[in-house]
Each structure stands twice: as C-alpha cells, then as structure tokens.
Amino acid sequence: MRILVIEDDPDTANYLASGLKEVGHAVDCVSNGNDGLLRAGGTEYDVIVVDRMLPGVDGIRVVRTMRAAGIQTPVLFLTTLGGIDDRVAGLNAGGDDYLGKPFAFAELAARVAALGRRARPGADHGATTLRIGDLDMDLLGRSVRRGGRNIDLLPREFQILEYLIRNAGQVVTRTMLLEHVWDFHFDPQTTLVETHMSRLRAKVDKDFEHPLIHTVRGAGYCVRAPD
C-alpha cells in the first residue's frame, strides 16, 4: 500500500516510515499540515496517518479540509497519551481510526492494514455469508458451520469471529477487538480478550485438524485458511 505519514516529530516519523516500509508499504513523510494537504491532494494514497498535534494547521483541520475537498482516503489519527476526548474529536473530523501515542508498532501496522483493506473496492461489505477455509458463516441466520458441522457460538463469540474473518489474513490486535466487538475504549487489566478468544478457539478449532485462528506473538490474532 501507499501510505502518507503527516508527523512533525522526526523520530516518530522515522520510526513509522521504516517500520511500514519493512512490512512492505511505500511511505511518504511530511512534517506539517500544509505539505500533508498538498501531498494528499496530488497523490493517490491507500491510508493517511496524521498526528493530531501538528505545528501550523493541526491534524483535525488537515483531515476536515481533506474531507471537504472530497478526498476519501482512510485516515488514522495518532493522538497524545491519555487523550480521552481525542477519539470523538478525530472521528467527528472525518478520521476513520485513532491510536494513542506511544503505541506498539504491531498495533499501528494492524490498524493501517485494516483501514487499507476496508477502503478497497470489492470488499465483502454487503455480503450475507462469509467463508474461510471450510468454515461458513451465515450473517443473517447467525449460524456457523465448519466441515459440515454446526458450531454453537454465543452472540459475542459470533461477533469476534465475524470481525476476524472480515479481516482475514491480517493481524487483529487486542485493542481492535475491544473497540470493535465490545466498544470498550480502555485497556482492561484482566485477560478479557484472551479468555473470550480461547473459548472461541475451543469451539472453532479444537476438533479440527487445521486451526483457522492463529496467535501472532506480541501483536494479536489472525484468521487464515489452511494452505
């Protein structure tokens, strides 16, 4: 993917650029809002990463201006530590996701990937069934079958699996699950996600030869069809 990073702190910008290049993206970095607007207007990007606090034109205004100019590229906001109001402000301005600084790089990479995938045409937005390997999910009937067998899932487990499958092949982090499945915007101090995941895996993977749900160490989870 082609990614634009608008970040004034050179260390953070460097950290972002080198990390994103390493996982195979093309990255352009600019250090202020005006340059960011110029670049975003002139080049087709898959994802734009914007620091909320920028000298001159701040991140919120950059995104608002972009949206007003009809640029619909998905935007990931980087917000300051502990900013409880930043999420709402960022999303209201037209941002698609947010991440508080400092962050684990795996978290950023997973979110950038999810944003890029969401924006691509042909994604399974309107689909009523999802399929991965030998597992079928009926979104209308709320039922799951794998290898011809019915799998009984609790509503929350169904939601987790749906979110994982919609992001199949990509890493889904703990916080992404918390935000999208539970709408929790804080960091639980207990093994909340892990416990739900282990129950889901017990139902989905335990009796089958090839697991669909994989743990990505230090990052999160990933659903992949067996090779």
Partner: peptide, 9 residues
Amino acid sequence: FDALLRIAQ
C-alpha cells in the same frame, strides 16, 4: 502515565 493523565482529564 496513561491512567494518570486520563484521571486528570
């Protein structure tokens, strides 16, 4: 730090 700042906010 995050929790402290959150509380302060």
